[in-house]
Structures are given as structure tokens and as C-alpha cells.
Amino acid sequence: MHIVEKRQVLSAEEMDRTLQRLAHEIVEKSGGTGSLALIGVRRRGVPLAHRLAHSMRAFAGVEVPVGTLDITLYRDDLSTVGAQPLLQSSEIPFIVDDRDLVLVDDVLYTGRTARAAMNALFDLGRPMRIRLCVLVDRGHRELPIEASFVGTTVQTSASEIVEVQVREIDKQDRVMLMDRVADRVQDSPPGNRS
């Protein structure tokens, strides 16, 4: 099995425009930003949340706090993933009680990360509302979860992978559609067929 690039879903420019639009949408549909806060889901949700907050500051002059959430302790597949679980810290520098929270993640797929993130937030308090913002919705939900704010929707097959790259982690901004391809045994050259 190896992984091949299929096509680019978003370029750096498109990604930037998409994030700008998402920031506008969140502000418009929040009825005031007084209790609004963003929660970036580790890892790539974190830089995305900071960029949304940055553009909200630029166009609306509002200071929206950003928290960081590590959902490892809340995953439902810990006993089946093939690696030693490694925890990272969650840093939420505000009280979540009565907050209007927007979870920010790069890709929405099965919905299990969003479920885990909601459980983690409820251990911290009782938010007024939780909405979900994702850069890419690739379908294949396994839970009744939908995002309130979607950057772009991509039709995918189960073998495909949506890879979001962000400059803070990956040195560049782009979204790629990749595919897992089985390594086939080499066919014999046509000329040798009898």
C-alpha cells in the first residue's frame, strides 16, 4: 500500500479566502461576539482557529479568545489504534460556562473527533452553545454530527485521504486529496504472452 496525490482541493490563496469567509460567517451568525470563543482541535485545528481569530480582529475589531483542545483522552478507539497514546496539553484560557463556542478542525470525516471534543468541553463546564467549523467536509459520517460552518465540501471514497497542510506546521498552505493504492504484483510484459 502506498499513498499517491490525486489533486489539489485548495491552493494557499483559496485556503486564505475560505478562512476569511468562514470568519465573516461566524461573526454574522453569532448575534454578537461578546461570548464567542474558538476552540482549535489539536493539531491543525489550532492554527486555523488562530487565523480565524486574527481575521475577526482585522475586519470586525473584535478580540475573540482561542483555546486549544487535545481529545486523546476522549477518543473511542484508544484500544484499537496501533500506537502508544501520547497526550498533549489542552489550554483553554477562559471559563467555558455560558460561552458561545466554535470548535475548529481541519477535516470533518466520521464525526468522532467532534464527539470527543464535545465530551471534553462538557468536562470543563456548560457552554451556552457549541458549533463546529471545518475547512473541509469529506463526508462518510458515522455519527449524527454536521458542521455549522464549512469551508469546502469534497466527495471522497473511503480509501482517499484529505490532507490539510498549514504553514505553521507544514511550511505551506494547501489541501490535497490523496489516495491509498494497493501495491500490485507486476504484470508480465505484453510481448511475453503466449
Binding site: L78, S79, T80, A83, Q84, R138, I161, M178
Partner: peptide, 18 residues
């Protein structure tokens, strides 16, 4: 918490993307 509670620590593959 890990997957290897009852088997010794042979190297395992990392979780797949997504």
C-alpha cells in the same frame, strides 16, 4: 490505555491518516 496491554511491546504501525 494503549492497544498493547496484553502483548509485549513489538513496534506497531502508527495510526493511519484521518
Amino acid at each position: 490505555g494503549g492497544p498493547n496491554a496484553t502483548q509485549s511491546g513489538a513496534p506497531q504501525t502508527g495510526e493511519g491518516p484521518n
